[in-house]
Nucleic acid binder design. Structure first.
Lengths: 336, 336
DNA sequence: CGGTTTCTTGTAACCGGTTACAAGATGGAT
DNA sequence: ATCCATCTTGTAACCGGTTACAAGAAACCG
């Protein structure tokens, strides 16, 4: 009746069973070359017999490396969320790292708390918090923990940033609409206080002014319903509008549905454009013209850069990714 | 010039700074009652001064609890993936746990390996692997690590399972189609070797036979394109079909798009139905009739049950969730 | 005022790995 | 046979927390 029947075998159990030292067992499992084949054999047999699996937590503690990357995301809408995670996961798996998920649905206070108790759990953090001032966030975070900021406002902490050039994307879209003959272009903005929403609105405004047109911005909050609502409100005002540019695809789709319900022809009477190129944009009818952000690639890139930081390499502070214009039937009728 | 300038403060640093013992510091941080207020004060001041954050990894090691749940998922399609994760995350956060992500895009061998080195990293596992025999999978996993199987085949290891009743759902859908006057109902199946696909096909076949109709099953693999393809192939054969029931929504949408392209009226000529009720099903036109699975709830439930297992409670071996029928315009024209 | 109980605090062992260092074994050169 | 270089192996300290146990202080009792 040995006292330790229950529970997993440890490295010391294996060492005893193999008649070797823990150091040798450790060497075998880490594939160090300096172990005599005969001993290696014995250790492996013992490990097999005891069904030994190394304890990652213990390993992490003594190595001071966990191989885990913390991903802090806001409460995201479906497609964007899954795409960015897919990209991150693939890249992380390739580098033998894992992802620890943490939503940031709370306020700043809790957020900082949440980040802090990531210490000892992760090697680094990817933080996406478009509605929170990163300076405040990082101020309470030990400078020694690597972190990169995704699609956030600029930070003065010297943390690396990875961002989509939202303003440039919005300008491109306005230029496309103007080039296809639209003049009265209305923008449905994203959530108030969200930096991406603000940047897209800025790009819209700049491009409109540059084209000698008057910007009109309606409030929205990135979800389908707010796109729907914006259009309904628009009709009440009976303004003459020939294009709607929503700050994201979900709102554009909401707008599309609302227009369909009221029997407005898209793109005949009104052109509709979005931003993000979620998979759905291609499937809806008419196909939605939008700015394509390679979301999975953005996620992969984030992991990539964070890995570099963790490995002590120097990375440039800010990196921008440019979205590209995808023209579909919601802005130009194909002459099929 | 103290030698340890770099790196985080440890509990011993705080103890020294506060003129207390590590035990007391630990007590303060764990809110144990038996600490004199004056000492508590001193410890907190010292911690603040050194900007001390407890090291979760070390804590986990000595407690033998990580507060992390490992989530092993196959390479899932967008909406399902994000929904199930959202549900899991919310539930996990409520219980103060985190999620460690791990995709299972590899074969069985690597999969087992991947599961094994979760030891010491997680308190339990949620495994979703509809294409892998769970008996083989769990056979190589220490029996002591809690795990629950999601939407998989039955296992003989006595592991708890959580499953959608796919066969019952498929039967319900066939009954709906029959009740609305359809007779020549074709099923587009999901990926070969996938248990969910097999169960849905089984339900379809059973219900068809029960209704005295002849089942016809076309191959597919759960993605939009395979739905598209199945319809194209169907037309070539010029069979007369009045309903298509795809094993999931993405294929149904592919079918819908293909039918639209060939000018077939849905639901006038052919009814189309899916399975899953992804958000997109509601947005596409015509709205897609489908079986609704509350995916987020499924995820939450999985976390819930796993938590119970981790806490040593007894949970029933198998739990089924029933999907519910959502009727939209793709099977019945509203007389608006 | 001595004895007992209760509360506070500290010491040191432990969780399960890694690894610096030392010691023993082996083999080659002279 | 002797000496030195190289290779293999083991001992014990360490990573940063938790906690059993013991001891000292304070409070309470008759």
């Amino acid at each position: 009746m040995n006292g330790k029947a229950i529970g997993q075998a440890t490295i010391r159990d294996v060492a005893r069973e193999a008649g070797a030292s823990v150091a040798s067992v450790s060497r075998v499992f880490n594939r160090l070359p300096n172990v005599r084949p005969e001993l290696k054999e014995r250790v492996e047999a013992a490990a097999r017999k005891l069904n030994y699996v190394p304890h990652a937590g213990a390993r992490n503690l003594s190595l001071a490396r966990t191989g885990v990357i913390g991903v802090v995301l806001p409460d995201l809408h479906g497609e964007f969320f899954s795409e960015i995670l897919r990209g991150m996961e693939r890249e992380a798996a390739m580098r033998g790292r894992h992802l620890l998920l943490s939503n940031m649905h709370m306020g700043l206070g809790d957020g900082v708390e949440a980040l802090r108790n990531m210490r000892g759990r992760v090697d680094g953090l990817i933080v996406m918090a478009p509605h929170i001032d990163p300076d405040l966030l990082f101020a309470h975070l030990p400078a020694s923990i690597p972190a990169i900021l995704l699609n956030g406002p600029e930070n003065r902490q010297g943390r690396p940033e990875l961002r989509i050039d939202n303003a440039a994307g919005a300008r491109t879209m306005v230029e496309h609409l103007v080039a296809t003959g639209r003049r009265a272009i209305v923008h449905i903005a994203g959530s108030h206080g969200n930096i991406e929403a603000a940047e897209r609105a800025r790009g819209y405004r700049e491009a409109m002014v540059a084209a000698g047109l008057a910007p009109v911005i309606l409030p929205g909050n990135f979800d389908e319903e707010s796109g729907h609502l914006a259009v309904q409100r628009l009709q009440i005002q009976q303004m003459d509008v020939d294009a709607i540019f929503a700050a994201n695809d979900m709102m554009a789709i909401g707008a599309l549905v609302a227009l369909r319900d009221m029997g407005v022809d898209v793109p005949g009477q009104i052109a509709v454009a979005g931003f993000d190129n979620i998979p759905l944009a291609r499937l809806i009818s008419p196909g939605l013209t939008t700015m394509a952000v390679d979301i999975a690639d953005l996620g992969a890139r984030a992991i990539n850069r964070l890995s570099a930081v963790i490995d002590g390499e120097n990375v440039p502070q800010t990196e921008l990714r440019y979205p590209s214009l995808i023209v579909r039937n919601s802005t130009t009728q194909t002459t099929a």
